[in-house]
Nucleic acid binder design. Structure first.
Lengths: 180, 180
DNA sequence: ATTGTCTATGCAACTCGTTGCATAGCAGGA
DNA sequence: TCCTGCTATGCAACGAGTTGCATAGACAAT
């Protein structure tokens, strides 16, 4: 379980409400740790009672009030402890890989359009990463420690997408070959 | 939910008992879809009552009896239907990426040994993939359709591991730089 | 005028996944 | 001899994650 920790990191980078966190999990952090708003609200309440975070009610006009959370000292301690724990092995759920093997017992050609759609979404994501890189890291020679670490994670995302695109091309070529 | 489908693919490739499936999920299939024996037994019972698979009791000497499952016609139909459904977006859980961003609020050097351990396990996995490739696909020019598809998935695994190793080296260099 | 979308939070019910434990015979090593 | 580990299946309890729905005011477009 590390949703708490992902939320803590996000709140340390920038305090925010449950709703704002949910949107971040749809965008940046969510590339590495997905979560729905339901999970986030539930975990936020638990973290508040545990003293990991503190909330401040913020009145807004034209909008519902919101509770802005920020990381507290016990949260930072918990995060430091977690950092020193061994990384749990990632649980992989690669549906497309299962489908490709499944295609051997059906028509491989039936998968082609799905793989193409998949390829397009990965191409779009790579594009967003590269655009975000230009915007958030315009001068790679002048980064502080936090940005250095954010950037090395982003580089991982970029390389992952490039590798995935190349592999999907390989998959498409294979499927076309099998469909003669 | 696609554990049913992952199990179906595995049973189509080779019938087997719950226990055997659990071991396959620890080895080959599990690289793309993880599952514990508890999940597998529970889903197998459901699949049997749904008629997707059929079981045959096999007595063994020196060992407990086992139930060997094989895919049935309704299971093949369900698999074909599933193949034609759109691929669900993958839910990513990349703990290490979260930890790297977390390191900005603690000591980046504290992560180095963990990343090194991580790197070693990916190097070992790449090695196992390459050894398995030699063993299972000695002649790449003479593959049938099923093997072609298994091999393109394996190529994906190999490229993923290579990319990950390169990225982990990048991460290590960054962490060392920040620790001066 | 009405529809739709956005902000903001939450309940209830459900399924999925994990953990700990139990059984039970056999094989191999300290 | 005792301990560990392997084969083989399963129960019970819990925690994590998903889905559907609800509220409610503000704003923009049709």
């Amino acid at each position: 379980m590390a949703l708490e920790h992902a939320i803590l990191v996000s709140l340390l980078e920038q305090p925010g409400s449950g709703y704002e966190l949910a949107r971040r999990f749809d965008r940046s952090i969510g590339r590495f740790w997905t979560a729905t708003h339901q999970q986030i609200y539930r975990v936020l309440r638990r973290m508040e009672t545990d003293g990991w975070i503190v909330a401040e009610e913020v009145a807004q006009d034209g909008r519902p009030d919101k509770k802005v959370y920020a990381a507290a000292a016990p949260g930072r301690t918990a995060l430091a402890d977690w950092l020193r724990e061994p990384v749990e092995p990632e649980t992989v759920r690669h549906e497309l890989a299962v489908k490709i093997r499944a295609a051997a017992f059906d028509d491989p050609a039936a998968l082609i359009s799905e793989v193409e759609r998949h390829r397009e979404s990965h191409a779009a994501l790579l594009d967003r990463y590269l655009t975000g890189e230009q915007r958030d890291f315009p001068d790679l020679a002048a980064l502080d420690a936090r940005q250095e670490l954010q950037h090395v994670v982003l580089r991982g995302g970029i390389e992952y997408e490039r590798m995935t695109l190349a592999w999907l091309d390989d998959v498409l070529a294979t499927l076309h070959r099998l469909a003669h």
